[in-house]
Amino acid sequence: MSDSEPSDPLHDIAEIPPLGGVFGRLVSGLDRLFALLASLALLAIAAVVMLQIVARVALPFAPAWTEELSRYLFIYMVALSSGLVLRRNRHVNVELFQHLLGWRSQLIYRALCCLVIGVFAAWMIPYAMKFAQVGAFQTSPTLGVHMHYIFFSTVALFGLSTLYAAIGLIEAGVAIARGGSTPTGEAP
């Protein structure tokens, strides 16, 4: 990046370079799968909300289940995209000092963040599973869906966060060990 180009605050922190080979293709496939599922959930939310709007304006009654379904789709959209957000460093964070670090130190910092997030998410999985079991004998008010399917979204959230934190940790560790050049071609 030249001095005349404006810097993008989302890209000021070192990106963890993805691995190639079979591992890289597998992770890329997982990325595409969860991006597709989250996108489908978003499209379904839009369709359900549009149905609700049209029903309120054009029909004598509006279906009661649309609000509930849109809420459940939103919950799953967030859960399914949680790993991608972590992998692409798009989650909410506070950048106080990272820009002062060198490329390698930024990778170490990102690896530590992945480690902390991964350990926390893995620790939460058993509790999320217990929470999902609470809904085994409950059904949603209007749709009649067993609530353990809805509560299982917490297992998906923490499971995907753990998986993607492990992927980020592996990729950062490999990048640190290789000690190659930064994405801009500079020595670290």
Rank of each mutant, 00 (worst) to 15 (best):
E95K: 07
Y164G: 15
Y127V: 02
M1D: 10
L42I: 02
P188Y: 04
L157W: 08
M124S: 08
F23Y: 15
I75E: 13
F97Y: 12
F74P: 08
E171N: 10
P183W: 13
V134L: 13
P126I: 13
I75L: 12
A177F: 10
S4G: 02
E95I: 09
Y76W: 09
L36F: 04
R110S: 09
S4K: 09
A165P: 06
G159K: 05
P126E: 03
R90N: 11
D31T: 12
D31Q: 15
F137R: 06
G135K: 05
Y164I: 01
Y109I: 03
T142R: 06
Y76L: 12
V145I: 14
R90A: 10
D31M: 03
A122P: 07
I45G: 03
L107H: 06
V54M: 08
L37V: 15
F97D: 10
P18M: 06
F151E: 05
C114H: 06
G135H: 00
G83Y: 07
A55F: 01
S28I: 02
S153E: 08
L59G: 13
R104W: 01
S181A: 13
F152Q: 02
L107W: 10
Q138A: 02
I117P: 10
M1W: 05
S28P: 14
V54I: 11
L163P: 08
M1F: 04
E186L: 01
W103G: 08
E95R: 11
F137A: 09
P63S: 03
F158A: 09
M50N: 04
I176V: 00
L157S: 04
Q98K: 13
R110I: 03
A156V: 05
G29E: 05
A166V: 12
I167G: 13
S28Y: 06
I108G: 07
E15W: 01
D12Q: 06
R104Y: 05
G135M: 06
S140H: 06
P60W: 10
L160W: 03
H148I: 04
V134I: 04
N93F: 08
P141C: 00
L42N: 04
A64L: 10
V27D: 05
G144V: 02
Q52F: 05
T139P: 00
R87M: 01
I13D: 00
Q133M: 08
F120Q: 11
T182C: 08
T162W: 07
N89A: 15
D31N: 15
R87Y: 11
G83H: 01
S153T: 06
M147F: 03
S140K: 02
G102P: 08
F137T: 09
L80G: 14
I45N: 14
T142N: 12
G118R: 05
R25G: 15
M77G: 13
L112T: 07
V134N: 00
V49W: 02
A122K: 14
L42D: 14
P18R: 15
H99W: 09
D12V: 14
A111L: 07
S105K: 07
R87V: 00
S82T: 04
G173L: 05
F120Y: 09
A14S: 11
R104T: 08
Y127M: 03
F23D: 14
A58C: 02
R88P: 13
L80K: 11
A177I: 09
L10Q: 08
F34A: 06
A47H: 09
E5A: 11
Y72Q: 15
H148K: 00
C114V: 01
T139W: 07
G20T: 13
S140C: 03
Y109H: 08
L101C: 01
L33K: 15
P18C: 02
G20C: 00
V54N: 12
H91V: 06
A55T: 07
